[in-house]
Amino acid sequence: MNKNWPLWEIFVRSKNGLEHRHFGSLRAADAEMAMNNARDVYTRRSEGVSIWVVESKNITASNPEHNGELFEPAADKAYRHPTFYDLPDDIEHM
Protein backbone atom coordinates (compact mmCIF):
# COMPACT_ATOMS: atom_id res chain seq x y z
CA MET A 1 0.00 0.00 0.00
CA ASN A 2 2.72 2.41 1.11
CA LYS A 3 0.68 5.51 1.89
CA ASN A 4 2.63 8.34 3.41
CA TRP A 5 1.55 10.08 6.57
CA PRO A 6 0.42 13.63 5.91
CA LEU A 7 2.42 16.63 7.07
CA TRP A 8 1.26 18.66 10.09
CA GLU A 9 2.27 22.11 11.25
CA ILE A 10 2.95 22.43 14.94
CA PHE A 11 2.26 25.54 17.03
CA VAL A 12 3.42 25.71 20.63
CA ARG A 13 2.65 28.17 23.41
CA SER A 14 5.83 28.39 25.48
CA LYS A 15 4.08 29.74 28.54
CA ASN A 16 0.75 31.25 29.41
CA GLY A 17 0.54 34.85 28.32
CA LEU A 18 2.42 34.20 25.08
CA GLU A 19 0.91 33.36 21.71
CA HIS A 20 1.26 29.99 20.01
CA ARG A 21 4.25 30.13 17.73
CA HIS A 22 5.04 27.98 14.70
CA PHE A 23 7.66 25.45 15.87
CA GLY A 24 7.97 23.24 12.81
CA SER A 25 6.28 20.31 11.18
CA LEU A 26 6.12 16.55 11.41
CA ARG A 27 4.37 13.49 9.99
CA ALA A 28 1.36 11.81 11.55
CA ALA A 29 -1.51 9.66 10.36
CA ASP A 30 -4.18 11.51 12.36
CA ALA A 31 -4.67 14.47 14.67
CA GLU A 32 -4.25 12.42 17.83
CA MET A 33 -0.93 11.07 16.64
CA ALA A 34 0.13 14.52 15.48
CA MET A 35 -0.55 15.80 18.99
CA ASN A 36 1.43 12.99 20.63
CA ASN A 37 4.29 13.34 18.17
CA ALA A 38 4.37 17.09 18.65
CA ARG A 39 4.64 16.58 22.37
CA ASP A 40 7.50 14.13 21.93
CA VAL A 41 9.35 15.99 19.20
CA TYR A 42 8.93 19.65 20.13
CA THR A 43 8.53 19.80 23.92
CA ARG A 44 11.27 17.43 25.14
CA ARG A 45 12.97 20.31 26.93
CA SER A 46 9.87 21.80 28.54
CA GLU A 47 9.34 24.18 25.63
CA GLY A 48 5.58 24.30 25.88
CA VAL A 49 2.36 24.40 27.84
CA SER A 50 -0.07 24.13 24.93
CA ILE A 51 0.05 22.67 21.44
CA TRP A 52 -1.95 23.24 18.27
CA VAL A 53 -1.62 20.86 15.34
CA VAL A 54 -2.94 21.71 11.88
CA GLU A 55 -2.68 19.51 8.84
CA SER A 56 -0.49 21.46 6.43
CA LYS A 57 -2.90 21.14 3.54
CA ASN A 58 -5.50 23.11 5.50
CA ILE A 59 -3.35 26.20 5.60
CA THR A 60 -3.99 28.80 2.91
CA ALA A 61 -0.90 30.86 2.35
CA SER A 62 -0.48 34.14 0.51
CA ASN A 63 1.53 33.99 -2.66
CA PRO A 64 4.75 36.01 -2.62
CA GLU A 65 4.01 37.09 -6.19
CA HIS A 66 1.17 39.15 -4.79
CA ASN A 67 3.31 40.74 -2.11
CA GLY A 68 3.28 44.02 -4.01
CA GLU A 69 -0.47 44.45 -3.97
CA LEU A 70 -0.92 42.87 -0.56
CA PHE A 71 1.70 44.54 1.53
CA GLU A 72 3.32 47.49 -0.19
CA PRO A 73 0.27 49.80 -0.05
CA ALA A 74 0.67 49.88 3.72
CA ALA A 75 4.18 51.28 3.46
CA ASP A 76 3.25 54.92 2.76
CA LYS A 77 0.63 55.26 5.47
CA ALA A 78 2.94 56.83 7.99
CA TYR A 79 0.00 58.57 9.63
CA ARG A 80 -0.91 55.26 11.25
CA HIS A 81 2.18 55.52 13.42
CA PRO A 82 2.54 57.83 16.43
CA THR A 83 5.84 59.29 15.25
CA PHE A 84 3.99 60.88 12.31
CA TYR A 85 2.60 63.60 14.56
CA ASP A 86 4.63 66.61 15.68
CA LEU A 87 4.24 67.69 19.26
CA PRO A 88 6.17 70.20 21.36
CA ASP A 89 9.05 68.59 23.24
CA ASP A 90 7.85 69.63 26.68
CA ILE A 91 4.52 67.86 26.45
CA GLU A 92 4.39 64.77 28.66
CA HIS A 93 2.30 61.62 29.01
CA MET A 94 1.39 61.39 25.35
Binding site: M1, N2, K3, N4, W5, A29, D30, M33
Partner: peptide, 11 residues
Protein backbone atom coordinates in the same frame (compact mmCIF):
# COMPACT_ATOMS: atom_id res chain seq x y z
CA UNK B 1 5.94 -0.02 6.14
CA UNK B 2 3.11 -2.15 7.49
CA UNK B 3 3.04 0.00 10.62
CA UNK B 4 2.78 3.25 8.66
CA UNK B 5 0.13 1.73 6.41
CA UNK B 6 -1.87 0.52 9.38
CA UNK B 7 -1.89 4.00 10.89
CA UNK B 8 -3.20 5.51 7.65
CA UNK B 9 -5.86 2.82 7.28
CA UNK B 10 -6.97 3.34 10.85
CA UNK B 11 -7.16 7.11 10.41
Amino acid sequence: EWVRDAAVAYA
